[in-house]
Simulated scan of single mutants.
Amino acid sequence: MSKRALCMGINNYPGTHMDLHGCVNDANDWAAELAGRGFAVSKLIDSQATKAAMVSAIQSLIGSAVSGDVVVITYSGHGTYVPDTNGDEIDGLDEALCPYDLQTGGGALVDDEINTLFSARKAGVRLLLISDSCHSGTVTRAAAADPDADNAPAPRFMPMGNWLPAEKLPQGISGQPLTTVPVISGVSPFVGALSRMMGDLLLAGCKEGPNNFSYDASIAGRPCGAFTYYALKALRRLPANATYAQWHAAITPGSLPSASYPQTPQIYGSQDARNRQIFS
């Protein structure tokens, strides 16, 4: 059995006015933790994490894994939506991850694309996804961060209006871009790529749906994701034989949600997968 991991963290989103602060630290923290637990780790940080590079890295990671291998993918960055083009979404929106070059040519990494990447894996590969981002918000453009509020928690959500041209935004009957769109699902794009039959698991930083966010935080003066910080803190206190369900229970409600970070981390996967020993 081999253990491989890919850790992605993106703070810088050129052209969007929506930079983050803690995502690179998250990726480095996950990478260090996983390396210490026997994983061969690769990272994509900021400008390395273009859409093409993310696709290539996931393909390589998935393609090289064989039955019995454990594969971990962590993502810290913005989540977003794109208008659905194949009619498989009730609300007309596809969930997506935001690469570094989201606004400068690469575009979003959509849930349908992630599903295709993951479906190529061999039977018996155990896949854990850790997503410190959110997929809940509006179409409208978000204002740039207040320069006097560096320590205020910021949602890791990228409104479509901050990166899609007006002609590609959802339109109303008048033909004008809509300012709001009802969001029905609002889940991580990793959710659609999960295979319960193959024992996949997702640890996500917040609930699905409107008004649920994963926060870019500052804890003890250091930028990070609130979920990543408390997930790693809980992990380090668990016994060696702890299960994923026990890990999740150690994060919430003990640490999150909190007054500063009102988010409730989620675990997705079969009961058998939840009861599996962590990283096994």
Rank of each mutant, 00 (worst) to 15 (best):
D88P: 05
A152T: 10
V125F: 05
C98F: 00
G87Y: 12
E113T: 01
V66S: 13
A52G: 11
D46V: 04
M158E: 00
L109F: 06
P147C: 15
Q103L: 02
I62L: 05
D84Y: 11
D91L: 13
W163T: 00
S133N: 00
A143M: 14
L102W: 05
A57P: 05
G79W: 09
S47A: 13
S60T: 05
D150C: 14
S47K: 12
V71G: 04
P159E: 03
P99D: 01
S67C: 08
L129T: 04
L117I: 08
V66E: 08
L93N: 02
T80K: 11
L164C: 07
S64T: 01
A53R: 13
A152S: 12
D132G: 05
S56I: 06
T74L: 00
L109Y: 07
H78I: 03
L102T: 07
Q48S: 11
C98V: 03
A49Y: 12
S131K: 06
A52Y: 12
G124K: 09
T85Q: 13
D91I: 09
H78K: 01
D91N: 12
S60G: 12
V55K: 15
H135W: 11
E89M: 12
K51T: 06
G87P: 07
L61N: 06
L102G: 05
M158W: 08
R121N: 06
D101V: 01
L127C: 05
A149K: 15
A152K: 14
S60I: 09
G137I: 09
S56L: 14
H135R: 05
L128S: 03
D69Y: 07
S133D: 02
E95L: 13
L117N: 04
V139Q: 14
E95V: 00
I62D: 00
T74D: 03
V55P: 03
A152Q: 12
A53D: 14
L128P: 00
A143P: 08
T104G: 03
V71Y: 02
L97F: 12
A145Y: 10
D148Q: 15
A52M: 14
G92W: 09
L44E: 04
T140S: 15
L44P: 01
I114E: 06
I130H: 04
V72W: 01
A96T: 02
E95K: 10
A96Y: 07
S76N: 07
T138A: 13
S119R: 13
L97V: 00
M54V: 09
V70G: 06
E95M: 12
I130N: 01
D94Y: 10
A52D: 15
E113G: 02
A154M: 11
D46N: 15
I45T: 06
G107I: 04
N151Q: 14
E95P: 10
G68P: 07
K122P: 00
L128Y: 02
I58W: 07
P159S: 08
P99W: 07
R141A: 15
G68V: 10
N115S: 09
V72S: 00
G63M: 01
L109E: 04
D84N: 11
N151I: 08
A154W: 06
P83G: 14
L117Q: 02
S60R: 13
D132K: 04
V125L: 02
S56P: 10
D88E: 14
D146P: 12
N115L: 08
L44S: 06
